[in-house]
Design a protein around this nucleic acid. Structure first.
Lengths: 145, 145
DNA sequence: TTTTCATTTTCCAATGGAAGAAAATGACTG
DNA sequence: CAGTCATTTTCTTCCATTGGAAAATGAAAA
């Protein structure tokens, strides 16, 4: 058989997906949220605790990241858990790698890491209650946060 | 000497640079401009010819890409030539590679490639004159564009 | 079933980005 | 120097995005 068919993929939605992803990555709050979910799953109330914005705003930022395909969410009762896309296409994998490579040296992201370590020591139910009531919850190590 | 100093770079401007770059990449017109400059230097009038927007808009988009560090410009008399950053930092190199890898399969970018090949056959002075006067310039192969 | 509650959506005000027209720049040309 | 001209900047308008408050959702708990 002579002659070679070269198949060239032309995808008219490539641009759309590309700019949806870069737009999702163009906001510092969303970079912080993504970085917070890079190494482990986080529930919304943990992310609200991390970042000083209303839960409505955090929720919208998370939706933007999920719609771009960078995060995925899992519902467990009343709680929603977010983590980075576990079945990434190459473009998503590359975008996540880009953030992983270039965001972690940022001071804010570093201090977020520390605060997340603290947040991890608190029962999410207590976290949510604190956010609801605006009060601190006493823990074994004293009063948290 | 015992003890190891581990130097951790903490850069408070990392986030700023990261989002400046991703914001520059979050617009289809800017992706097209960047893609057009990936393989060779282009002057503004060539890019205006490629994309159906005012020269003012093109100029502003190019400035955004240059301010992000993705493009660099070279002035030659009244003409300004743009090309991709020739001394890229790692984040810039990664961003350019991201576009190179994921934008080229887009239909619009593909047809831009074809049109750029046509544009390359035209003397930039004629191009500028066409844009000035709104008239076509006859060429050896007939009437261009 | 009614209440509680974590999260999302809706609504509105404020901000930011993108577009073109026209003025301004800065450099060649006569 | 005056004129021409490629490009950039300014100005204004329009549309998209962000943020919080409050209503809506939907799932557990009482």
């Amino acid at each position: 058989m002579t002659g070679v068919r070269i198949l060239i993929y032309r995808n008219e939605k490539t641009m759309n997906q590309l700019t949806t992803i870069t737009h999702a990555l163009s906001d510092p709050t969303r970079i912080r949220l993504l970085a917070a979910c890079l190494d482990q799953e986080r529930c919304v109330c943990q992310l609200v605790e991390l970042i000083d914005l209303s839960n409505a705003s955090i929720s919208k930022h998370l939706a933007t990241l999920r719609n771009a395909g960078l995060l995925e969410s899992r519902k467990e009762g009343r709680w929603v858990h977010y983590q980075t896309q576990q079945s990434p296409t190459t473009i998503i994998a590359d975008a996540l790698a880009f953030v992983q490579t270039h965001a972690l040296s940022d001071d804010q992201i570093q201090s977020d890491k520390s605060k997340l370590a603290e947040i991890d020591t608190i029962d999410p139910c207590d976290l949510a209650k604190m956010q609801r009531t605006g009060c601190c919850i006493p823990t074994q190590q004293g009063v948290s946060l």
